[in-house]
Design a protein around this nucleic acid. Structure first.
Lengths: 157, 157
DNA sequence: TGATCGGAGATCATTATAGTCTCCGACTTG
DNA sequence: CAAGTCGGAGACTATAATGATCTCCGATCA
């Protein structure tokens, strides 16, 4: 059903959170740790950790080790597109199996496939859609982090 | 990775095939049976049968029983959109889990979800994209059925 | 009336996803 | 400089979605 994975969902939430902390009015420039995000959005801590690690590898965010460590955006929210985020987590996105076929593997339908061309068009349109929307665009409007999220830090669950 | 399922793939191929037989130059109006499509595109016969049955239930195609039976388009290719086809097979399509939530089930992130609104926008755009493209649009350009497909009918494998 | 077709259900296999557990190494801070 | 806090990384398990198969039925038409 064209669904995006939970992991990708988590990635979007986390990035949105990090961005809104970093550029928000409350505590701009503060690093955000995994635990804070996990608690705020009810995301399994260890799964979120994996997601953030992946995002860090891809350069979407910067990691800082040690106590008071955490994550910062790797670059401006304006330069991070939804497509990039999704691809960081899920790999190259394609509507069909044959979108990104390596040599050697070929779908059985290839020889007589009658829908490849139109589907690639659709895929292209979707990609452009996702690549034209940035993290910045996701910051407007929606209720951002609550003040609470800043204060719950360090509070035992 | 935003992939559409094999079943949906098969549905698209089958409908494209049926449409191009029905409105093609070779044997216009001919009914097409499951076996013919399965062989032409290397689709597992019984799986394809299921797909076609589903499409028939949704009114996308008309079924005709008995010998010389098979399928015909349920309505004009111009009135069948990609979105309709996909939804016939996969159910209502949604980018996120919360797209079509019934009462009672709610994602854990709901209360503080910061990406719901922008994602719903994205979803809407994708839906429109798919709903503006019809089966008719898929008929142009691509190499349609081979003459062979008409002649292989009734020939033992 | 029997061969050929679709209709329908149960069932199995495979894969992708989601989530967990464990250990490690880096760093800050007191 | 040692302790505690953080991210890094891998193996691992569970569960759900998907893909595929099997079997039996009823309709139809030559």
């Amino acid at each position: 059903m064209l669904k995006i994975s939970k992991k990708a969902d988590y990635a979007l939430m986390a990035l949105q959170h990090i961005a809104s902390v970093q550029f928000g009015d409350v505590t701009p420039g503060r690093v955000v740790n995994t635990k804070e995000i996990a608690e705020e959005y009810n995301i399994p801590l260890e799964l979120l950790a994996k997601v953030l690690q992946t995002l860090a590898k891809q350069g979407m965010i910067e990691s800082h080790n040690g106590p008071k460590g955490g994550y910062l955006l790797g670059r401006s929210a304006r330069e991070i597109t939804i497509a990039q985020i999704l691809e960081s987590i899920e790999g190259p996105l394609g509507i069909t199996d044959c979108s990104h076929e390596k040599q050697g593997e070929m779908c059985l339908q290839m020889e007589h496939c009658n829908i490849r061309t139109p589907l690639l068009k659709v895929q292209d349109s979707i990609y452009q859609l996702l690549n034209n929307m940035t993290l910045q665009d996701m910051l407007g409007g929606t209720p951002l982090i609550t003040i609470q999220s800043a204060t719950t830090q360090g509070v035992e669950r």
